[in-house]
Amino acid sequence: MNLLPFVATGIGLGAVYALSGVGLVLLYRAAGTLNFAFGALGALAAHCTWTLIQLDAPTAPSWIAGIIVSALASFLYGRYVSARLVDRDRTVRAICTLGFALAILGALTTIWGPGLPRRLTLPTDNMFVIWLGLRLSYTRIAALLVAVLAVIGVGVLLTQTRTGLAMRALASNRVVSQTIGVRIRATDAIAWLISGMFAGVAGLLLGDLVVLNPLTLTFLVIPAMAAAIIGALRSMIGAFVGGMLCGMAEALLIGVPDLAEVRSAAPYVIAILAMAAIMRAPTMARE
């Protein structure tokens, strides 16, 4: 069996997992919260965009509006809900985002219904290049570029800006950071805003490349979690590589008899292996 076509399909999927993983890691590093609502925020963006397009709004502004909606929702949660939980255990904060996810999911299924999935399309879906005999659509290439840019952008943010410095300080020690004047709530809120933007972009790309359905998009946060875990919840590049690995593995396994039947489990298996490796590395196990 020729596995090359599955490399092409894995690139698109992996890129979106990678982008999601980077968004999760950013938030975890800055605000110390593992955001289970990441997928739901993406679903929110994708459905708002779809509705605008159905109302004959131009494509580009509709996509931007969807990203703004998810970023805003994420910001509001970070500013007014998560901010009240800063002193609580990380597990509590993570569980609260699960409630946020379910609230968004409930709203989405109420407004858009759980029935037939819709389609979100881009003109780039049917534009493609042939590379090594692979048919790579511009949308897949764009997804990969966006994921790479996200890693670079977050890297620049963390290392070249005062906000990034504050985020790194918070990641290192929140109490000491507060003592030396880091504005914890403002920094957290910015992290939520950026993470919400990432969620929006990932949701839109998944809505285009995979399926536009509230439930499916909400739970696609799970492979993204796997990507983030592969990055030890700290490394952007690790999350990127993890996301690509998860997407590629899921795509390639369809060509492997027996394993094809369980390929959706690939991200979890990879995450478990990554966790086992992380636990064996003392310096990385602190988190």
Partner: peptide, 11 residues
Amino acid sequence: TFDQQSADYDS
């Protein structure tokens, strides 16, 4: 046979 839990329809 295929795993219909996977959202990867392209593959």
